[in-house]
Every structure is written in C-alpha cells, then in structure tokens.
C-alpha cells in the first residue's frame, strides 16, 4: 500500500516521464531536429549553455540569476506595496471607498498593454519592467489582503486586547494567522504574474536574462536553443513554486493538517 503523499509523487514523476517519452518518440518519428529536437539534444544544449559562454559572452547562470533577481525585486516590491495598501483599506473607510473605485480599472487593463505602457513611459529599462509588474500585481494583492483584513474576527482581537497583548504579539498570533490564507492566494497569483511579465519584458527589450536569450535564439530560428531556454525557465519556476512556496504554505497551515488528521 502506498500512502497519499507517495502516490502523489509517483503520479507526478510518472506523468513527466511519460511526457518525455512521448516527446522522444515524436522526435524519433519526425526525424527533423530543426523542428522538434529530442529531449536528449535539449538536455545536452542546456548543459552546454551552463558551462560555455553564450552569444552575449555569459553562461546560462548569469542570465538565470539576472532574471531571478528581477523577479524577486518586482515580486517583493508589489507584495509589500499591495499588503500595505490592502491593510490600510481594511482599516480606513475613506481609503477603502476611494481605492475600490480605482482598483477594478487597474485590474481590467490587459497585462500586455500594461507592459507596453510601462515601456513607452519608462523605456526599455529595469524601472520599466519593475513598474509593469507592480501596476499589474499590486492591485490584485491589495484586494486580496483587503478582503482578509475585512474578514478578520474582531472578537479575537478584543480577546487579545482584554489580556493586554502587546501589538507585536497581536500581529504575530492574531492578525497574521488570519491573513495567511489571503496572503498565500495573493502570493501564488503575484508570483505567477511576476515571472510572466518579467519574461515578457525581457523578450521585448530588457538587456540579458532568460527572456532575452529566448528571443535572441528565436530570431536565429534556433529551435534547440529556444526549447532549451523554455525548459530552463519552466523547470526553474516549478522548482520555486513547489520547492519554496508550497513548503512555506505547508508550514503555515500545519495546524490544519493536524486537525484534519
């Protein structure tokens, strides 16, 4: 008998293996590496990109770290700003009403247009990419956190105040745990949006980074390299989501698992 956890992992690994197999078979049948290179060829290319300097004179490590730095800077900035705005909205009626009128407008503008706007205003610069991410992600985060702040159980806060809990204790044990589900749903969305927009901005004009390399090889019509960079990007983002965020989430909600038993 397998436990639930083991079965999930087996299933996931199994389906990835099957996908790779299908790819390999398709590549064998098609027999045209210009259109569909085999998984082995991609793996070899990736390995090569890591050790040998590419067309810009940098190895893959350089581009990956640059993209990661951009993603984390934009992600952190929009999370911080969004959480702050959401909390203020939850506490102040005037701010709430003012922003509830504006935020839907921001959420309606298609992401790609936001990227274009940011590029037109700020040029192909780091600031342009950062602002594009913040313009898209911050309103969403703010709305989520605002809902969390509104749903907060006031009777628990009263309980804390009645026992004379200091503000830091209230934040740690009463406010934050109640905001956690909203935080994580905002987190996931924000992270997903951030990496998509950063990749887009890199493709369109930022210098260096995974998206930049992707576009470079696209212009050369080099299918092996294009696929290699896509694979690198996907693997990296999946590793972050499952390795980092899922782990954080499991820790934050360990108490739920404990009561579900």
């Amino acid at each position: 008998m397998m436990t639930g956890g083991v079965r999930t992992v087996t299933l996931r690994v199994g389906s990835i293996v099957v996908l790779l197999l299908l790819w390999w078979v398709a590549a064998r049948l098609m027999h045209d590496p210009e259109v569909l290179p085999s998984p082995g060829a991609i793996a070899a290319t990736i390995a090569e990109d890591f050790v040998k300097p590419g067309p810009t004179g940098h190895s893959a490590i350089f581009h990956i770290s640059l993209t990661l730095a951009r993603i984390f800077a934009a992600f952190a900035a929009s999370m911080l700003l969004g959480v702050a705005i959401g909390l203020v909205m939850g506490r102040n009626r005037l701010v709430e009403r003012a922003l509830l009128a504006v935020i839907p407008l921001m959420l309606t503008i298609p992401t790609i247009l936001m990227v274009f706007l940011a590029v037109m205003w700020f040029g192909f610069s780091e600031a342009g990419g950062l602002i594009a991410v913040m313009a898209v992600v911050t309103p969403y985060v703010a709305v989520n956190i605002f809902e969390g702040a509104k749903a907060m159980d006031g009777s628990l806060i009263d309980m804390g105040v009645a026992f004379k809990a200091q503000n830091s204790l209230l934040v740690r044990k009463v406010y934050l745990p109640q905001l956690m589900p909203y935080m994580f749903s905002a987190f996931r969305y924000a992270f997903g949006m951030t990496w998509k927009i950063v990749a887009l901005a890199e493709t369109f004009g930022l210098k260096f980074g995974i998206g930049y390399m992707f576009f470079f090889w696209f212009e050369q019509f080099n299918m092996v390299q294009v696929l290699a960079w896509i694979v690198m990007f996907v693997v990296l983002m999946l590793a972050l989501e499952h390795g980092v965020f899922a782990r954080l989430e499991r820790r934050a909600f360990a108490w739920r698992a404990a009561i579900a038993h």
């Binding site: 009777s155 628990l156 004379k164």
Partner: peptide, 28 residues
C-alpha cells in the same frame, strides 16, 4: 491582572491548547 472568559471560547484555532494559554502568559 484581569482574566476574561467570553460567551464563546475565542480561542486561536491555529495554536494548540498550550499555545492559547501561552498567548495570555506572553501578553501578561
């Protein structure tokens, strides 16, 4: 020092029973 027992328990569900008691101890 004032202890308060409310109509509903008003426990912090994300903390164990010990954690809930420790919350009051830390507050005080």
């Amino acid at each position: 020092r004032i202890g308060y027992v409310f109509q509903s328990p008003r426990l912090l569900n994300w903390l164990t029973t010990a954690g809930n008691i420790e919350f009051a101890l830390e507050a005080q």
